[in-house]
């Protein structure tokens, strides 16, 4: 399979910033796909299980494409089945670290995490990394259906009120904080914007996500948001001292070992085909 590429001349730091972004997109989509797959069973409607299964397939497909870009553009090889990285090496959004307790977690991941990634991908369209731009159209088309699913469930649980809405708000609060951290401190990606690899910085993308989420909710304050002069922000701002730029996270954790074992097929090594 050949894929034409354009390799812009980048300095070391800019190149590393781009590489860590692609790894973070790949890792997060892998974990997101895992959770969608996990909720093929046990959803509140059989159609929701079918949708979750379909979204899992698409997220795994996106991971596969990002891993090809990593190999071709950065000579970094990530094969989920043969990956030996420790959980603390993953650059995924912390909200995805553990098994989801309820459907509310799935909906929160769907509407927050799954909407954050397309914002980042879209920012690279028209930038110098052709290999991202050439796959973005199709990815974003598939993501539109993920958003339709997420929006439908958020509106339904909001309308229903009571325990479903409270559970959703609790899940959203955690997903929003972890995903906000993923976007990083202001100006952390200034070099990528200056190099014209992306057309908007992550701080502005985070703002866009929070505004979009606030518009979906009757009372955005219940999920830890507050309205300010620039739009909606976190009521309790994040402290950035411990932010790890390689992992785009604030904490030292990582995905549960049991989840990584399942993703890697650890129990079925003897049956591997390659």
């Amino acid at each position: 399979m050949s894929e034409a590429t354009a390799k812009p001349e980048l300095d070391g730091a800019t190149r590393l910033g781009l590489q860590t972004t692609v790894i973070a997109l790949s890792d997060t989509k892998l974990l997101l796909g895992y959770h969608y797959g996990e909720w093929t069973f046990g959803p509140p409607a059989i159609e929701a299980g079918i949708a979750a299964c379909s979204m899992a397939q698409e997220e795994f497909g996106h991971t596969r494409l990002f891993n090809r870009i990593l190999k071709r553009e950065f000579e970094v090889e990530i094969d989920p089945l043969n990956d030996t990285r420790a959980p603390q090496a993953f650059a995924s959004i912390a909200f995805l670290d553990s098994a989801f307790e309820s459907w509310a977690d799935l909906v929160a991941a769907n509407v927050v995490v799954d909407q954050a990634l397309p914002l980042i991908i879209r920012a690279y369209i028209g930038g110098g990394l052709y290999s991202i731009a050439r796959v973005a159209d199709k990815m974003l088309l598939e993501e539109r259906f993920h958003y339709a699913h997420a929006e439908g469930w958020v509106r339904l649980m909001e309308e229903r009120g009571g325990a479903p809405r409270d559970a959703l708000h609790d899940s959203l609060s955690r997903a929003i904080r972890d995903t906000s951290a993923f976007f990083g401190p202001p100006a952390h990606d200034a070099a990528l914007v200056t190099a014209k690899l992306k057309n908007i910085d992550d701080d502005a993308l985070r703002q866009r996500l929070l505004d979009r989420l606030a518009n979906l909710l009757a009372e955005p304050e219940t999920v830890g948001l507050t309205s300010g002069s620039q739009g909606w922000t976190l009521a309790e701002p994040l402290e950035w001292e411990d932010w790890d730029p390689a992992r785009r996270r604030l904490d030292g954790g990582g995905p549960d070992a049991a989840i990584l074992d399942e993703l890697r097929g650890t129990k079925n090594v003897a049956f591997k085909t390659a």
Binding site: M1, S2, E3, A4, L65, R134, V135, A136, D137, K138, M139, L141
Partner: peptide
Amino acid sequence: ILEDIRGTVGSIPGVADIEVDVVWSPPWT
């Protein structure tokens, strides 16, 4: 699918090599 393509097109007399370029734009609908 890629294997089927290579097998089928490769069996046409005169085909020396097959280069398959997977593209995502414009997306399929």
